[in-house]
Amino acid sequence: MKARSVGEVLDERIARGEGSLVGYLPAGFPDLQTGIDAAVALAENGVDAIELGVPYSDPVMDGLVIQQATQKALANGFRLRDLFTAVEAVRSRVDVPVLVMTYWNPVVQFGVDRFADALADAGGCGLITPDITPDSAADWIATSDRTGLDRVFLAAPTSTDERLREIAQATRGFVYAVSTMGITGLRQDLDAAARGLVSRLRDAGAERTCVGIGVSNADQVSQVLEYADGAIVGTALVKSLADDGVAGLARTARALADGK
């Protein structure tokens, strides 16, 4: 099944005056098949695009819940080749964009072109790369241009206007706006800087912006969608899967989707 770009899906909802819900899960958690079923459950319960994270031994940007999940996936034998198996299996069952979120080192170790070709062949639509900036990503930009994959870079409230322009120009799909400084996790209040960051990104030329880190309930999804094109939820979904399995995850996804 040919992958639709995440931009196409966001644009469809924007045209209807609606925002999008993006859901994150680590690939291979708690095991490969359950992780596939969990991602499918997201798509079947109101999530518009899926992020599958690559379990990594040094997840510097992740909070405790996601760290524990990725460690369990690795302990259960997850290997990078399993990522492509998971993407292909999810895409064979649901027609939603599947992005891969990965630190850059695993891509380099696998081979940038080899990774991109395997992801495209599996039906994935692109990469979110939290630890590289456009000025250090020439090889990825060239490869994603060749393969047509989306490339999502992160922007933070501390980013300069010049950096935001570079990110907006280099990104394809959406810019991932980090709502607050720090690691992923649940927060009671989103940093007000997120709203200002989205405004600055629009001024910098970003076509679409989704806000993540700290978004954990339907009210926060609704708040984010007042000013952004999408809301990204990770920790709340991972915790739900860990605590209550796929059925619990489905309930959480439906509740979050009520905020759209």
Rank of each mutant, 00 (worst) to 15 (best):
P26H: 11
V108M: 14
G17F: 08
Y176R: 06
D161R: 13
G46R: 09
R4P: 01
V178C: 08
A43L: 05
A168Y: 00
Q71M: 14
L42P: 00
S199H: 13
A39G: 14
D229M: 01
A236H: 00
P59W: 03
R13H: 14
G7M: 08
P97D: 06
A39P: 10
S216C: 15
L74S: 02
F110Y: 15
M101G: 04
V65P: 09
V215C: 09
G77M: 10
F174Y: 15
E8R: 08
L190N: 09
V54S: 07
D31T: 14
E162G: 10
D135I: 12
Q33K: 14
A231L: 11
R200I: 07
V215Q: 07
N217W: 09
S159I: 00
A156D: 03
G53I: 01
V224G: 02
T102S: 15
V54Q: 09
Q109P: 00
G248T: 04
Q71C: 06
D82W: 00
V224M: 07
C125P: 03
G111C: 04
T184C: 12
G148Y: 02
G214Q: 02
V98R: 10
G259F: 01
Q71Y: 12
A250Y: 08
V90F: 05
R79F: 01
T209L: 04
V65C: 10
F110V: 12
I50D: 02
E8P: 02
M101Q: 07
M101C: 02
V96M: 00
D161M: 07
A192R: 13
L127M: 11
V178K: 07
V54H: 05
A41W: 05
L164M: 15
S179L: 10
I141H: 08
T171E: 10
E162W: 02
T102Q: 03
D135E: 15
R172V: 07
G46S: 00
D244E: 15
F78T: 01
M101P: 06
K2R: 13
T70G: 09
A257M: 02
C125S: 12
Q68Y: 04
R93Y: 01
D11R: 13
A41H: 03
N217E: 12
P26G: 13
A218Q: 11
D243H: 12
T158A: 13
D131N: 04
R91I: 04
A39T: 02
R202G: 12
I183V: 15
T143D: 03
L237C: 09
E207G: 03
F115C: 08
I132L: 15
G248K: 12
R172L: 02
T209W: 04
L25I: 09
P26K: 11
A120I: 05
A142D: 15
T34V: 11
S136R: 13
S216R: 00
M1T: 14
A206L: 11
V65T: 15
T143Y: 00
N76S: 12
G126F: 06
D258H: 12
A49H: 06
A170Q: 07
L186S: 11
T143H: 02
Q68H: 09
E162L: 13
G111D: 00
R146N: 00
R208M: 09
V87T: 08
R93F: 01
L80R: 13
Y176W: 06
L201R: 00
L190V: 11
G123M: 05
S159T: 12
D31V: 09
R172N: 13
V9Q: 07
A15H: 10
A177K: 01
D189W: 00
G259L: 06
S199M: 10
R251L: 14
R208I: 12
A137T: 07
P30I: 04
A242G: 15
